Measured scan of single mutants.
Amino acid sequence: HNGKLCKLKGIAPLQLGKCNITGWLLGNPECDSLLPARSWSYIVETPNSENGACYPGDLIDYEELREQLSSVSSLERFEIFPKESSWPNHTFNGVTVSCSHRGKSSFYRNLLWLTKKGDSYPKLTNSYVNNKGKEVLVLWGVHHPSSSDEQQSLYSNGNAYVSVASSNYNRRFTPEIAARPKVRDQHGRMNYYWTLLEPGDTIIFEATGNLIAPWYAFALSRGFESGIITSNASMHECNTKCQTPQGAINSNLPFQNIHPVTIGECPKYVRSTKLRMVTGLRNIPSIQYRGLFGAIAGFIEGGWTGMIDGWYGYHHQNEQGSGYAADQKSTQNAINGITNKVNSVIEKMNTQFTAVGKEFNNLEKRMENLNKKVDDGFLDIWTYNAELLVLLENERTLDFHDLNVKNLYEKVKSQLKNNAKEIGNGCFEFYHKCDNECMESVRNGTYDYPKYSEESKLNREKIDGVKLESMGVYQILAIYSTVASSLVLLVSLGAISFWMCSNGSLQCRICI
């Protein structure tokens, strides 16, 4: 991952900044910058967002509201009850120091605090018919004063009620008058409520006091790749198909172990950190130390980045220098085999997901714990399936590479015959000098055995068991695999060879 928040398929997220979902939807004055928000790819909250409900109280069923919003990608904020005409018999300019803005008392931008007009609070009834052709999110509140005197001074009615009804919602609220500790300079409380109004449905408000009335509502448009994440990451000019709280993932790998919460087309989250597919040879310690064997393909974004291909070729060293050249036929066979294998694994496992966190309130801790156990169970199954699949494929890959290298080895052996000696570690020792032209003939299969047989015969008789390297004779190393990324691999195959001279070296080696 890149540690950044990015656009998702070209669409920017909605960053709530210092506000949370509650503050944004109710219209906390400190969240005025969010009022123009219309569309987004996903919503970003920060872990310690401080601006929620400015007048103390709870947004009821907040967790369910977050779940609903996680599939919303755009909205239209509109005046559901026009301020100047909807409440002619009531005062609608209630403000509070708890919702101060720029040093002055204020109130929510989407709600109206209705109080008595003169000395009376006549029963009010108002309704709205949803003609938007889509779901409408309606929010309101109920004020709970701290004393009967406060109730009387604001609403005149000691036994007030609030009723809200639609086809799918029907509740009646009565204020709970009680002494409470002071929070944000208030002994009173406000509880906030919401409902989704279906197209064509009607919502009716009736009250004799204590109503925090809707002013603006939201017509919602769903987008199934949307979601809500909690993150401290910063926004950058970048684009992605998959976003996590820790950063964007741009990967076609089937798995990731970065974060379980994802938005967009994302690899499946697994616990494993070692889900690797081999593309090189079986481990040979001396070669492995030099980083030549054991190439791997990573299938977990965050564990290993991208696929690494092994390729086969020849390396030689003689009086004229040293050089490398790919054996294109065996390399292409290996590439085709690995590509098919990788595609097979991805096809089997690479279903892209959006995974969002589930919200539970403080009273639902047991449910949250149960949900976590269920999620953990599914996660263990996914991890096991992934590891088992790759384990089985790896064994076949190792066998496949062994065969490829063996074929190259036999190709060289059949040409050199007794003009060189096998020394048991995949290397041959020449009994004759071999210049670049000679080396090329070994690589392309045109090695002239009779041409060098007499010199080889004489050297075999002279050496008589002495280690060949100390006599200045020449080696050919018969097994060799270097490691390159897919891009470098293609470039390498396009070149005939490249040279690395070893000044004054008397050794001649050709490596497979």
Rank of each mutant, 00 (worst) to 15 (best):
D380T: 08
R366Y: 10
F400R: 04
C434S: 11
A295Q: 07
G357W: 04
M277E: 04
K274F: 00
E364Y: 05
A478D: 09
K433Y: 12
A478V: 12
N239K: 03
I496H: 15
K467Y: 06
Q475K: 01
Y447D: 07
L487F: 13
I346R: 06
N503E: 00
T482E: 12
T351D: 00
I381K: 06
Y269G: 02
L493E: 00
T244F: 04
M277I: 09
D435A: 08
L408P: 07
G357Q: 07
A484M: 08
G321F: 02
G303W: 02
Q332Y: 05
D399P: 06
I308E: 07
R396L: 01
T305K: 00
Q507I: 07
C434A: 08
I308F: 09
K329A: 14
L490W: 05
F293L: 14
M307W: 05
L403Q: 04
S330H: 01
H432D: 10
Y480Q: 08
S453T: 09
I284A: 13
Q332N: 08
S234E: 15
K421N: 15
G445E: 13
V261N: 15
D376F: 08
T354A: 07
G264S: 02
S322M: 14
L389F: 14
A297M: 08
N444R: 09
T397Q: 04
I300D: 08
W311L: 11
T244Q: 09
R443D: 02
E347S: 14
D435H: 06
G291H: 09
I287T: 02
T397I: 07
Q288C: 02
L468V: 15
L389D: 02
E440G: 15
K329D: 10
I258D: 00
C511L: 01
K268Q: 09
Q352W: 00
K451R: 15
Y409G: 06
L389K: 01
L275C: 05
P254T: 02
N362K: 10
I381A: 05
Q320P: 02
Y452F: 13
N340S: 07
A386I: 15
V374G: 03
G321R: 05
K274I: 05
M439P: 05
I346D: 02
Y452D: 07
